[in-house]
Design a protein around this nucleic acid. Structure first.
Lengths: 160, 160
DNA sequence: ATTGTAATTGAATATCATTCTCAATTACAT
DNA sequence: ATGTAATTGAGAATGATATTCAATTACAAT
């Protein structure tokens, strides 16, 4: 336990947001926030719940679902990968903007940054007089490991 | 009714796919396929159902949901916009690859093509030894019309 | 420190798109 | 014409997320 010092600015950011909107900084919200700072890069609602369970916190799933939009609106996390059975979130506070490759076989998520792409996107928005709030690029396919595995399987089939 | 001549190649494509997989080209599947060819650019499952209803077809929602993956696998449609309450599909057969801007206010979807972006994406995949099957870029924000509306509303507030 | 009040909570229940089950029907290769 | 595996509709199931409501709590004002 302990060792949550690094999350201070996270907490400041969240508190500011809450105050600005006449919302309260409750014990439950603090616990959800801390669970998220501990969380690995990509997670979903249920992951937060499990994390809290481990820590003997009794925050309910309902509260987690109610807290997620607050965390999004305060700029701490964002929904990243949709289209699966559940939404994947990730921390974005003080993180450079980046994109994702998702392996359709093992589910691995590979992050990458791409300044060239940012430039292009800005141009497109300017040309279309579109005010963007969010870019989301997702490349689906098969990662190196899975490609290797799949090739080996093919070889074995040929042998048999 | 009538006037479905243009969909012949759609039907060929679908029939080929079905035959290749030992699946049957049923009356219901034909009707779903034709409903889709009539459909506007972006649609969801329920839209297909409504379309069929208009045409006095009794294909069930279950069958529509069962047919969608077949249409995807045969390369006729693809899921485009996730993260809303339902998946948005679009026709992709014989259409150039393109990207989307989604207005968070009115829901409008603006398509655009961008060859530069394709080049960058191919490079990224090559560098990461990732075999991509699908690129998906979604820019969320506010379209020109909605920006105008929102600015007018602000002005009015100031006046009051 | 006390109080008033609006915000918040957990538990249970609702929602709603999508998927599944199953018995009856149908496409189509032979 | 026939056998059989695939398909269908109806309704029930699923499962992530949202909502309801009575009880609790944060916190601004006193």
């Amino acid at each position: 336990m302990g060792c949550i010092l690094a999350s201070t600015t996270y907490e400041e950011q969240f508190k500011n947001f809450l105050k600005k909107n006449n919302l309260k900084f409750t014990k439950e919200r603090r616990e959800v926030l801390r669970a998220i700072t501990i969380q690995r890069d990509h997670f979903h609602a249920e992951d937060i719940y499990q994390q809290l369970r481990k820590q003997k916190s009794n925050v309910s799933l309902a509260t987690i679902y109610r807290t997620i939009p607050l965390l999004i609106d305060s700029g701490l996390i964002k929904g990243t990968i949709y289209g699966g059975e559940r939404v994947v979130y990730e921390k974005v506070y003080n993180k450079p903007h980046h994109y994702h490759m998702v392996c359709l076989n093992c589910g691995k998520i590979i992050e990458f940054i791409c300044p060239d792409m940012e430039v292009i996107q800005n141009n497109i928005c300017r040309n279309n007089i579109f005010l963007s709030t969010e870019y989301n690029l997702e490349i689906k396919g098969y990662c190196q490991d899975c490609r290797r595995k799949m090739m080996n399987e093919k070889k074995e089939q040929k042998i048999q």
